[in-house]
Design a protein around this nucleic acid. Structure first.
Lengths: 133, 133
DNA sequence: TTCAGTAATAAGAATCATTATTAATTTGAG
DNA sequence: CTCAAATTAATAATGATTCTTATTACTGAA
């Protein structure tokens, strides 16, 4: 009766590709990568399945860089750093102090927190060395 | 020789409107509000001037809600809560522990932090009461 | 005041990431 | 296998934002 999810080879492949990388790829990046093995894959399918995977808690959209959403299969709470020059997205450990603070804010303001995201933007160590500005 | 910025009544009005609210409006919301006093204002002008104000450090784009960017004239570091139901964006004090953690991460990972944003998403107290889910 | 140079604007076109539509294909239960 | 429901490719549509261009407004100098 309810919508029963079927095994889809494409969805499987999208999740595997996402799990195998720490690059926090865009839908487009996943599409380009997977086209090699699945020449008939379409970009819409990547978008739709990223949505499905997010619904199921197997993936999450992490932040937006240069107008595109970045996805991650690592759903454990952690922070991100985004380099404004090379646009790399790096994982960082979420300091315990931050996690605690979120819970306090929760109580203090009376809302129900469902997601807590800490994102730092700036210049990564590589870009910082190779160029001023 | 340099680009000398001219006084623009429209830009002034956009900044004042942004300073006068805590709603973290979208460009569209500002446009709708200002049309009353400036019937000849165009949406493109709002977008362009939000960019200019951001460049000058007088405004900042805070987060994206339902596909639209939200803007704020409060450029002091603070955290935000976003309600997924009513889409309100609320200011919260940035806990000192978080600010400190950001500085530590900075040292630990060797990047140059330029912006640190803490955003919590969930259900605000109003929506939590008026509806389950 | 007049003029030139330049910034700012309105209007609308263009861009581009994402979402929706639809007809065809795949999947899994019976 | 057979059928209904889920999934898909292809493509159209959406919608926020940016760009273009012709026009207007400001500023400083003569």
């Amino acid at each position: 009766m309810e919508n029963k999810r079927k095994n889809s080879r494409k969805r499987q492949a999208i999740l595997e590709a996402l799990c195998a990388t720490k690059e926090h790829p865009t839908a487009e990046m996943l599409y380009q990568q997977l086209k090699a093995d699945y020449p008939e894959l379409s970009l819409g399918t990547v978008y739709r399945n990223l949505g499905v995977l997010a619904e199921e808690g197997l993936a999450v959209s992490v932040c937006r860089v240069a107008g595109q959403e970045r996805y991650d299969a690592d759903t454990a709470p952690h922070a991100h750093f985004v380099c404004r020059r090379c646009r790399k997205v790096m994982d960082m450990e979420l300091p315990k102090a931050v996690a605690e603070s979120c819970r306090e804010l929760d109580r203090e303001y009376g809302f129900i927190a469902e997601e807590c995201s800490l994102t730092i933007r700036g210049l990564c160590s590589g870009c910082r060395i190779s160029q001023a500005g």
